[in-house]
Design a protein around this nucleic acid. Structure first.
Length: 204
DNA sequence: GTCAAGATTAGT
DNA sequence: CTAATCTTGACG
């Protein structure tokens, strides 16, 4: 089964993060695991690391410079940045912008397309609606952990396919989730989503 | 070395 | 609403 189409190359991610974020809605994330294709349509994500009217993004992990955890964000575009939050949940980001820039998009929700039996097995007891709704759940459903930090977004393993970009008319935005500590940046509308999609981590 | 806090989730 | 759970990063 091939629901995605052509593979998105590293150059796709070598653009301003806000531009890439909007362009990623409707694209397909593919994970090859033990010979099985797990795939989902991107329906919700957030942009991090850009500046707005000259103001720094206080919600970005890289705000205080390069550290052991965020090193991948400073690396070349088209790679994964995976980190652990609250000691138990992994979050998958896609590194954007030129090397040295520290911009990335956090994938927050997918609409399952392929390998649903595997996702179900990785999320025992959970309803289909919840398999990939939320950054932690998404990573769990695809079997992603810290070992994927820094991995190139290319076969084999993890990559993105063209899918169908979402028309702007179906796109929604809102402040990012869980960044109330970020001062002015907490209100910036850098969460992008497909309006009305049932797999969102929460209402748009 | 020590310690507070977190780009979340599940359960009461 | 709150517990869970542990790495990270700031500070000394």
């Amino acid at each position: 089964m091939d629901s995605g189409g052509r593979i998105l190359p590293p150059e796709f991610f070598d653009r301003p993060v806000l531009e890439v974020a909007r362009d990623l809605l409707g694209r397909v994330l593919v994970r090859e695991r033990e010979g099985r294709r797990l795939a989902g349509r991107i329906v919700e994500l957030e942009a991090y690391g850009a500046t707005r009217r000259g103001q720094p993004d206080l919600a970005c992990h890289a705000i205080r410079g390069k550290t052991r955890r965020n090193a991948s964000m400073f690396g070349p575009p088209g790679r994964a940045y995976v980190y652990l939050v609250y000691g138990m949940h992994h979050c998958l980001n896609l590194v954007c912008g030129p090397e040295g820039r520290a911009e990335a998009v956090l994938l927050r929700a997918l609409e399952p397309l392929e390998g649903e039996d595997v996702m179900a097995a990785l999320r025992p007891g959970r309803p289909r609606r919840q398999w990939t709704a939320g950054p932690g759940r998404l990573s769990a459903a695809l079997g992603l952990d810290l070992g994927w930090d820094g991995a190139p977004l290319a076969p084999p393993g993890l990559w993105l396919e063209e899918g169908r970009p979402l028309p702007a008319s179906r796109r929604g935005s809102s402040p990012r989730v869980g960044v109330d500590y970020a001062g002015p940046a907490a209100a910036w509308p850098w969460r992008f989503l497909e309006k009305g999609n049932p797999h969102l981590s929460r209402r748009g």
